[in-house]
């Protein structure tokens, strides 16, 4: 392939329009599940961290779910929740499940890592459980949790492409199209855009984490 080919592909306004549209779809299909998955994982992880029985069920379910290949999950979901077979909602649901399965471990790990004396001190000062969770444990869990969210975001962004095989939008469409027309340019552009999106979201997550955890940056000082 030559650069000319790439230039010709990107030079066409209709191609650029399609790129923008699929890119937008891709962002939507990867980030909405990220948010939903996080919302599911936090309460689930909270329960799992407290009750060993819940932990066993949640972790067991999460690991089986995580083992199921994406293509399989994408096509099985309509059979389970009754959506239409070639609907992008299937991708959203599947990625939400993956995200939750991955993050529930992060949540539990992050909560486990909160130092015992800190929670004991909070209890001793008269925090009730919900308030303690929201104002002490959850903020302290942010660094570990962010690590999990970063993994999930990268994973989601690269997985959305597989959705093209079951007819949903996103940058995966560029791959199927390139394959059908034996044309390398859209494939290359699709790969680069996916990597770029993953990188940008990752940076954004790091920035958000730093904003949320001012105490982690200011370590030098008195003594360590």
């Amino acid at each position: 392939m030559t650069l000319d080919e790439l230039g010709r592909y990107l030079g066409s306004p209709s191609n650029r329009e399609q790129l923008a549209e699929q890119f937008g779809q891709h962002v939507y299909l990867s980030l909405v599940p990220l948010l939903l998955g996080l919302l599911v994982a936090v309460p689930l992880g909270w329960g799992a961290q407290r009750l060993p029985s819940v932990r066993a069920v949640v972790f067991g379910g999460a690991s089986v779910l995580y083992t199921v290949p994406s293509l399989a999950l994408f096509v099985v979901i309509p059979g389970i929740i009754g959506t239409r077979t070639l609907d992008s909602i299937n991708v959203v649901v599947a990625l939400t499940l993956y995200t939750a399965a991955l993050l529930v471990r992060s949540v539990v790990g992050a909560l486990d890592a909160v130092p015992g004396p800190v929670t004991a001190a909070a209890t001793a000062m008269g925090y009730r459980p919900l308030r303690r969770f929201l104002t002490v444990e959850l903020p302290l869990a942010v660094p570990v949790l962010t690590a999990g969210v970063r993994v999930a975001s990268v994973s989601n962004i690269s997985l959305v492409s597989v959705g093209a095989l079951i007819g949903t939008g996103g940058l995966g469409v560029l791959f199927t199209e390139g394959f059908r027309t034996r044309y390398l340019a859209p494939i290359l552009v699709g790969i680069v855009l996916t990597l770029l999106l993953a990188l940008v979201v990752d940076r954004a997550l790091v920035l958000a984490r730093n904003r949320l955890t001012p105490w982690t940056r200011s370590t030098p000082g008195g003594a360590r």
Binding site: A121, A122, M125, G126, Y127
Partner: peptide, 22 residues
Amino acid sequence: DPASLRRGIGYVIQHAGLFPHR
């Protein structure tokens, strides 16, 4: 009530148990 009781009793532990995020 435990929470109100505890607010009226000071508590100091080893390693202080300070909130690292505050």
